[in-house]
Every structure is written in structure tokens, then in C-alpha cells.
């Protein structure tokens, strides 16, 4: 598992970005920002934000697959 841990400051920043940026922000290793018509811009932040699952999809495959992979 990746050893990326966000600090308290990052979390606050991410809370802000989650709201202030118009669309979801995606990350897998690098931060990908999508703002208005600007799509998929990489930013060198080794943290987060998402885009895929909504509550309705919680039982759907992506998350559960991710968990089952780590099932001992």
C-alpha cells in the first residue's frame, strides 16, 4: 500500500479544493484538477480527490474490488 499520508494542513486544503473547485478533483499519486472547461490538469500533489463513487455506488464493484484484493 502507498505510504502517502496527508497532514492536517493538506486535509484542510483538500476540504477547500473540494468546494471551491467547480468539479471533482481526481488523484492517483498526482493531483488531477478539473475546473470548468479545463480538464485533467496534473498538479504535483501526492494526495487525492476523487470522482467516482457516489453513495448509490458504494455497493458497486470498484470499492468492493479494491477491498477484496486486500482480503487475506
Amino acid at each position: 500500500m502507498d505510504s502517502v499520508t496527508a497532514t492536517e494542513k493538506d486535509v484542510t486544503l483538500l476540504e477547500l479544493l473540494d468546494r471551491v473547485l467547480d468539479k471533482g478533483v481526481v488523484v492517483a499519486g498526482d493531483l488531477v484538477i478539473s475546473v470548468a472547461d479545463v480538464d485533467l490538469i496534473y498538479v504535483g500533489l501526492r494526495v487525492l480527490l476523487s470522482s467516482v463513487q457516489t453513495m448509490e455506488r458504494l455497493r458497486g464493484s470498484p470499492l468492493v474490488d479494491a477491498w477484496s484484493e486486500s482480503t487475506p
Binding site: M1, D2, S3, V4, T5, A6, D10, V11, L14, D18, G24, V26, V27, A28, V47, L48, L49, S50, S51, V52, Q53, T54, M55, L58, L63, A66, W67
Partner: peptide, 20 residues
């Protein structure tokens, strides 16, 4: 409003966001 959850591992190791 229910928003998209952040990608797993976003904030802490081993953590998954289940509600945003």
C-alpha cells in the same frame, strides 16, 4: 447533498471515505 467520495487512501493510509 451527497457528493462523490474522495479516492481511497486520499487522506490516511487504510482509510476509505464512505460518505462526503
Amino acid at each position: 447533498r451527497i457528493n462523490k467520495v474522495w479516492f481511497p487512501r486520499a487522506t490516511r493510509i487504510h482509510d476509505s471515505m464512505i460518505l462526503n
